[in-house]
Amino acid sequence: MVGDLAQSEPAGPEPLPPVLSPRSKGTGPRPSLGAIVRRAVPFVPAFVPLAIVVAIIVTLIIETGLTHLPGLLGSNFNPTPSTGAPSWGIMVFVVGSFLTAVPALLLSMVVGLGIAIASVTYLPRFVSRILDPFVDLLAGIPSVVYGIWGYLFVSTYFGNTLNPFLYDKLSWIPGFGGQTPPGSGLGIPISVFILTLMALPITTLLIRDALRTVPRDLWESGLALGATRWEVLRRVSIPYGRAGILSAAFLGFGRAFGETVAVAMVINIEPVYPHNVFQGTGTIASLMFALLDSAYGNYQFLAALCYMALALLAITLVVNVVGRWSISRLSATEIAGL
């Protein structure tokens, strides 16, 4: 019976007739060589980005020379030791990258979610129209400006006020106490702060877009059932926009993980695991940037940097592609501007 019912159901709307456009394949005779070439020509410019990505990967692989470097996956990075053989543990920087990017991502997701909810739900339209561009402007400020601001100005606040406070009050948390007292304001906390600011516009914009795609009917039927705005948000809007919120997390992470100059300026680069958060460490990107000059002529050093570049590229590419893929269902015209 069920099968009969299913069969007797009327078919959906007729599929649209094909558009007359260069996309539709003609049904004429076998295409000539000229036609094949004409059809192939658009592929050349369209895959320029692929060519660039391939060029990057090939260059990096050639430069590593696939050299075997002792202790590459270890935790001891010492390219020019006073005695003995150099060691190339790049794991220090992978850990450093995650140590800065993950807290920054969490903070920017929390704040971004709050801002997006306030902007979409609670503020009057004209107020959010005034305030939203400020958040978007955060994305426009160059990273080197963040860096110089952080290094010259914010670091004094961190060094004099915030870091001693954290050291006093939170020393029971592993990573906040320990041997190294907070000296200058440079280190992980200020890096996390700067990265949060840099990831914030991306997460806010994407979450805002995701919440705006929630149909008005759903919103109003929720309210009509007696739910408060907060309840509709929690039970309807956020589940509805979860793909967009997830992609905000991925893209914000990509931004924070790959950030180079701002972090290089404020993290107080040292190639060691930090004893606590107030000590300097390094991220992959900032170290690749800061050490390239001193690696000139030292082929093992250059190879180690290129392995780091490949690791960074692999991690960010995976994160980005997954993020974009989860976004692809959303109509998000503003994303192209990021």
């Binding site: 895959f47 980005p49 990505v53 990057i56 260059t59 290129c306 590419l317 592609v321």
Partner: peptide, 21 residues
């Protein structure tokens, strides 16, 4: 997808292409 991959590439990696290439 490839354009997005390139846009998501950290700028320092593009700089490495410029430096080595």
């Amino acid at each position: 997808t490839f354009a997005n991959m390139l846009a998501g590439t950290p700028s320092v990696v593009v700089g490495y292409l410029g430096y080595f290439g």
